[in-house]
Structure formats: structure tokens, C-alpha cells
Design a protein around this nucleic acid. Structure first.
Lengths: 197, 197
DNA sequence: GTCTATAAATGGATAGAC
DNA sequence: GTCTATCCATTTATAGAC
């Protein structure tokens, strides 16, 4: 146990990644400062560079985590045979990811990616694969009569992800009502995509 | 009429503002380069600085335009006595703004504002006033029975704007089907906020 | 009003001591 | 593994000629 005022010792890569994602979330990739990330992780800039290659690698590691979360959601959704149930569960899981304190910085980081560098384009391409998978899922739901057919499935998928991806900018994961906000968001999105009888 | 290859002459402030908003839209404020903006407007950096004070002013002028568009939409919506009709019209107008080639860069610019500088915080505060006005409108709609009551009006307003604000990232204003995409987005949002009978 | 040249500052990345 | 000091590329912004 160290006394107050002593320099903090280095914890692990995890704390660096969280610090980086938090900084990216707060300022965006370009405005993020390596010095801020280092300070938040309790390191000097030089020490940070001893552990990671640079700013781009921090972005890559962070977006990989966000993509892994998406993949987990889709993996569970794929296991459900009914497309309507599958979509519902997927939306729930994505919203959970988006409003979880530990996951939010990574998710927001991925959403903020603009695709200007080669690295960013790769991350964006990965994300688009999930756009297409959701569209395919919605299309099956349309065929089954559960999903509205007056909007093309690919447009519906974009609208759906558009709503979900906007959550990070205003939902506070530590908000006392985060559970009811999650179910509100789920209800809103489902109403938007469900077929009217 | 000047010959091909001649250096372009300065047009007016308008072309500078559009070039700036395009650059901000493409790269985000921090990654935007003054040199790119100057080149796109057919000027050298120095000449650009002869006309505007700097990067921050370009952001301020652009976000002012976006806010003016929002104000126009709300002004028209306010004139409609029925809250449900008012919300519907507002959504249509915001979507139109968001998918108009000439307006999109300014709108996207405002949406991208993160609130890190004093200037950005002011723009963000202006935007929040419209969040609240939409919430008030939705609340009146809830009282009248047209808007769903299982989600609080302020949450509904955030979800609604969240969907609308995501359009800029994937709707191409020059897309041949932009008209049908507009009505699809309107239908989706309205389904999300409308009371089920 | 437009340019070239340059100042001034920022910030990512590295050297090298401990 | 961590630090201080520094390098150096980039980029905003300005000076001053035409």
C-alpha cells in the first residue's frame, strides 16, 4: 500500500485500454491526447510507449473489443430459430452493450470511427458486415410477416442501428433508471420495425 | 469567363463555408485541415485567413446555419395546433434538412460537435433546447393520446433525435431513392413514438 | 485580395539515464 | 519499467511583398 502523493505504479494493459477508450469517447480519436491517456493510466508518455506501439494501436485494440461485443450479440441471436425473436434478442443485447459502463467506451469508439485511415476503414468494413447480417435477419422476418414490409430490409437495418448507435451519446450507464431506459429503447426500435396488423 | 487551368478567383464567403462544412463532415473537426478547406474554396491558406478568423469561426458559422435550420423546422411545427400533426411535420422537416445536399454538411457538423471547447458547448446547449421543445411537444401528444405513454417524453425525444441524427452518416442526398428513404425514416420514427391502440 | 515564406505551437514518438 | 528531456513532423496562423 503506497502513501498518498506517491507516483502510481503501472497496473496492466487493461487500464491503459480503458483510459484510451475513455479519452477517445470524450474527445474523439483525433483530439485525443496520448498524454491524457498516459496520465489516466498512471504513466508517463514514455512508459505508455513502452507498452503499446502508439495511438493507432490503441484505436485498433479498442475497436477490436467493440467488434467482439457485436459478434457475441449476433452469435446468440443466430442460435434463435425464429427471426422475430432473433431480432428482438439482438436489439436487447446491443442496447445492453451500449449502456454498460465497462463496454461503452469501446462501443462508442467504434461508432466514432470515420474511415479516414486504412485502419479505420478496416474497422468500418467489419461493422458493415453486421449491418448486412441484420438486414438479412430482418428480411427473413419480413417473409414471415413479423417485420414491416413497406421499408426495405437494408434501410430498416440502417435505421435500427442508427437508433442504437445514438444511445451512447446520451445514456449514462450509471443513471439510476438505466434499466427502464434500456427497455424504452428496445420498445421504440421494435415498434419501428414491427409489422402493423 | 476564365480559361481552363487559370487559378480560380475568390467567389464569396458561401463557398468557403460549404468547403469547411464538407471537410468537417468528412474528417471531423479536429482532423479537418485549414489547407484542405482553402484549396476546396480555390484559395491559399493566407487568403482564407484574410476572410475568416480561423478554424473555430468556421465551426461557429457552420453550426449557426444548422441551428437556423432546426429553428425553421420548429417554427413551422409550432404553428400547427394539433401536437401529433406538429410532431409529424417536424420529423419530416428535420429529415428533409438532414438529407438535403446543401444542408447536410452543416447539419452533420452540428451533430458532430462534442462540447470540448467553449464554442462547442454553446452550440450543444442550443441543440439541447430543441431536445426539450420536442419533449414538450411529445408530452402534449401523450396527454392527447396520440403518443405512446410507456416511455417518458424526454426519453422519447432523445430516441427520436437519435434516429434522425444518425441519418447523415449513411443517407446519400444524391441517391436516386432518397425520397423513399425519407418517407421510410419518417414511418420508422412515427411508429416508434405513436401510441398503440 | 492573393500569394510565398515563415513564425509559433502542438503533440506524437524516441533517446538514454536510472 | 519508468522517468526527463528532446526530436521532429505537422499544422495553425501571421508577415509582408505584389
Amino acid at each position: 500500500m503506497s502513501a498518498v502523493g506517491e507516483p502510481r505504479s503501472f497496473n496492466d494493459l487493461e487500464s491503459v485500454l480503458i483510459a484510451a477508450a475513455d479519452e477517445f469517447l470524450l474527445r474523439g480519436y483525433d483530439a485525443a491526447r496520448i498524454g491524457h491517456i498516459a496520465a489516466a493510466a498512471g504513466l508517463s508518455k514514455s512508459s505508455l510507449y513502452h507498452h503499446v506501439e502508439g495511438k493507432e494501436q490503441l484505436l485498433a485494440l479498442g475497436s477490436d473489443r467493440a467488434l467482439a461485443g457485436l459478434e457475441r450479440g449476433f452469435a446468440e441471436a443466430r442460435r434463435l430459430p425464429d427471426p422475430a425473436e432473433s431480432v428482438r434478442r439482438l436489439i436487447e443485447l446491443v442496447i445492453e452493450d451500449m449502456t454498460d459502463r465497462a463496454r461503452l467506451p469501446f462501443v462508442a469508439l467504434l461508432i466514432g470511427v470515420r474511415g479516414n485511415s486504412e485502419l479505420e476503414r478496416r474497422a468500418l468494413d467489419e461493422r458493415r458486415r453486421y449491418d448486412r447480417e441484420l438486414a438479412a435477419l430482418l428480411e427473413r422476418g419480413q417473409a414471415g410477416g413479423a417485420i414491416r414490409v413497406d421499408v426495405p430490409a437494408d434501410v430498416l437495418a440502417r435505421l435500427c442501428f442508427g437508433t442504437l448507435n445514438s444511445l451512447h451519446s446520451w445514456v449514462r450507464p450509471d443513471h439510476p433508471d438505466v434499466v427502464s431506459i434500456r427497455s424504452a429503447a428496445t420498445a421504440y426500435v421494435l415498434a419501428g420495425i414491427t409489422a402493423t396488423r
